[in-house]
Design a protein around this nucleic acid. Structure first.
Lengths: 197, 197, 197, 197
DNA sequence: GATGAATGAGAGTTCATTCAT
DNA sequence: TATGAATGAACTCTCATTCAT
């Protein structure tokens, strides 16, 4: 199935924004990577910043949808958080460039675009907050600072995008399993009491 | 005690590089922040990139020295790692801008400068690796993937620089304590068996 | 009666060239105004500059023809000049955009196209010159500098295209009458001695 | 006396804006004319549009001041208008480029800058309106449409900037005298009753 | 007849850096 | 020590125009 030029432009942008940063990436770099002239780029995008915003919305939006589905109808907070961790980690491992862009370049966006992206991020993080809060209320999680713990776990998982390589010995499942275990332990859950599925 | 102009330039750079990124910060921004003309800046720095490299070396170098001292003569791996976590967290909480620059802008450096900075970082992370490895060998830590665990914990702690505010209710000690507990749990150490000092 | 696409393009050009100037008008502006894609435009025009030249030739050519007819077989120089003034003023009032383009954008044309347009303009102005010269010779006009006077009167009349609105209280006939009177007076003709028809 | 670089930039702009129009003049043209690199231009100006606005304000402002002085303490409306015409004509003859820029490029300005320039122009034209209105009231001027007459006379005089050359046979005084006579006649004043001084 | 795609050239503007004073 | 002046290179983005479909 053919890839549209528009898609090629986006992928080029994701790659370069992730590797060199938004401000470190020039329009000509983008054009070269997408195999287009710099003038032609503008048939497929608005401004460079709009392109960035779109990439972020796409990436975060997709993660949010997957996360919602992953926790729908799951009642056990341990299972809910485990699934969120697993999804987060595998997403960051599979799409490290997209996620790095989302994590690093929010500050570049105009106030308006930023609001949208931050809105998506907040909605996503609320799934984590809810799972943790429910777990604490039900007594299956043990943490004195649920908010900080959530942030700490999120940052811990974000890191995957910066180092994981599919060429290494560790498969995606093993990777996700490891992070789930770390998270559960951090919340005071004994090993073996938090199967994902 | 007077602050040298040179120091003022560095602080300006740290602030702006942290807030807007290296590529997002112009020489004129720097000059304005340091209350100098852009030409005068060059009396106190080499190129913009050299300034960045220096900031990174300073920051990482100081952290490395502190870390070495913190673990010198400490034999218990739990105590060593706890101290490393506490130091890391408090450093990131106290100097969020410096640490953010170190964490985000390594890719900007020229190969030569990068080598130095990466060298420092590796030396620092080795303190963590050693503590974890020792703990595993001695049976006080439980983790199937020591390397990944180290990275995960480091990333978790790095995050502090992105959100901690001294104006909040949480003091530095409590903050550090919380992260130490998360780390110990992640390594399978039961609460209460890892006092820092 | 249907308007050809070609005519629509010209009208769009006249409007935009008059309002924003030739250089201030982009091909895309033109396309939007003519409700065509910018590529389609080129089915109905040569280059942008050729379009401008054509507009000018059309407008000036029509004025020249009307002027020739208006003074044909009229012997009294006062009547001839009066008719020229009236025609000039009503034309500028009715087609302010065309005339503004002609008056403002001559400098944009290539030498070749300019020569043609300037030729038309010269031929037109010669009708004025002749009428004034004849009037002076016959002693019905009084002016020490016929050439300057001609230019002054022409400029005076050109201005109509910049301010006249048909929505105001002044009708076209009254407008023309007023300018005829100004011109006649400037040439030393007493009021009432210069009926147009 | 040396001419400042800033002044050189302005003169270059006046020349090119007058000859090729604002949109027809590139920053690189400007730089070449001012014998500067295009980057250096920006030490002496804000944006290209701000440069235009400044030129217009300077030119119109100077004309307005001169005009105010010219009519101060003059009671006879004929004399006042004669002086205004003479000043206007000599100014347009001496500084044809400045005045052409003012007359042609107002539409290019941003709303804010336009407001200022139009304000100056209105204030200037009011001097004409007042003189004409006073003359009509006192019975020394005869015109059915004072407003239109004013506009017509202004446009007539503006034209001078488009054709007058100091190299021709006509001196400035004779030029001004001729236009004053045309204006007076247009207002129904018999020759010889309107000495300028 | 109509247009999406494409582009080299150029637009205005800012970049990091140097240097004479 | 301090800076105004200067610039080549680069920036993001738009230009008028062509062409395959």
């Amino acid at each position: 199935m053919a890839v549209t030029t528009r898609e090629r432009v986006k992928r080029a942008a994701v790659k370069l924004f992730a590797d060199k940063g938004f401000h470190g990436t020039g329009i000509r770099d983008l054009a070269q990577e997408a195999k287009l002239s710099s003038a032609s780029l503008y048939h497929y995008m608005g401004t460079k910043e709009e392109l960035l915003a779109e990439i972020m919305r796409d990436s975060l939006g997709a993660l949010l949808e997957s996360a919602k589905q992953a926790v729908a109808d799951v009642t056990d907070p341990r299972q809910r958080l485990s699934r969120l961790v697993a999804l987060h980690v595998t997403t960051h491992a599979r799409q490290p460039k997209e996620t790095r862009v989302v994590d690093h370049e929010i500050g570049v966006l105009s106030p308006k675009a930023r609001r949208t992206v931050v809105g998506l991020r907040d909605e996503y993080e609320r799934l984590w907050s809810d799972a943790i809060a429910d777990g604490v209320r039900e007594g299956v999680f043990d943490t004195a600072e649920p908010t900080i713990t959530r942030i700490a776990l999120l940052e811990m998982c974000n890191g995957v995008a910066r180092w994981y390589s599919p060429k290494g010995t560790l498969g995606l499942d093993a990777l996700a399993g490891h992070y789930v275990r770390l998270a559960m332990r951090a919340l005071g859950v004994s090993d073996g009491r938090h199967a994902v599925s």
